[in-house]
């Protein structure tokens, strides 16, 4: 659904994405893993069209609507319901859709609360609901549970599974291998802006082909 062809992103002299070629195909979630600074965030932002490429190309089915939840989502200074409402297309049955989405992310009854007063985990789920309000075909999630406790992490992962089961293509980044194992249909290992390995999850975890993947999974620090 999205194809990177030699996509390169640089800031000054630093190359952040280095000739990345990869395809995100319809199906179960694609998980980007890699240490901090590997380029996961940049890759998701580029796929979303928020980053200019220095060279290469990213192609996306024009009909495929994209949405993203940033690692630190910013809530508008409005109620939780108004944050979802903001992302809805004109003329939808708004009240009903808002209720549905709040229910989906386990925030039923939170609609009238000021969004910025919600806890970290609640804001993350609200951000998910807001992204889903755009009815995306592809949903990008940047470290969706990076700063959350296990219960909130489980809640988020359950929502991701539900959304994926409805046919939405999920692409998420994480540096949590456990999360990758729990969610991934296929895995992309990034390191220093390069795709080191891209394989179906079962294959990737059972018999990684590269030395970096082996070391990453052994818990070694990739530097």
């Amino acid at each position: 659904m999205i194809i990177f062809t030699d996509a390169t992103v640089a800031a000054g002299k630093v190359t952040i994405l280095d000739q990345v070629s990869v395809a995100f195909a319809a199906g179960p979630p694609t998980v980007l893993i890699g240490p901090n600074g590997a380029g996961k965030t940049t890759m998701l932002r580029a796929a979303m069209g928020l980053v200019k490429l220095n060279s290469g190309a990213i192609s996306c089915l024009s009909s495929a609507r994209r949405a993203i939840v940033f690692q630190r989502p910013v809530m508008l200074r409005r109620s939780a319901a108004a944050n979802i409402d903001y992302a809805l297309a004109r003329g939808e049955a708004r009240t009903q859709r808002i209720e549905e989405l709040l229910n989906l992310v386990g925030l039923a009854g939170f609609g009238d609360r000021p969004a910025r007063r919600l806890s970290g985990g609640e804001q993350q789920r609200l951000a998910l609901a807001r992204a889903l309000a755009r009815d995306p075909a592809i949903l990008f999630l940047d470290e969706p549970s990076a700063s959350l406790d296990p219960a909130s992490t489980k809640a988020i992962e359950d929502i991701i599974r539900a959304v994926s089961a409805r046919g939405v293509k999920v692409v998420l980044s994480t540096h949590d291998l456990g999360q990758a194992k729990r969610l991934a249909g296929d895995v992309v290992l990034l390191h220093r802006g390069r795709v080191i390995e891209h394989a179906p999850a079962s294959e990737f975890f059972a018999e990684p082909k590269t030395d970096q993947a082996l070391r990453f999974m052994a818990g070694e620090l990739l530097v």
Partner: peptide, 10 residues
């Protein structure tokens, strides 16, 4: 500065 990414994404 705070909103720009979200508004661009939306």
């Amino acid at each position: 500065l705070e909103y720009r990414d979200e508004l661009a994404a939306l």
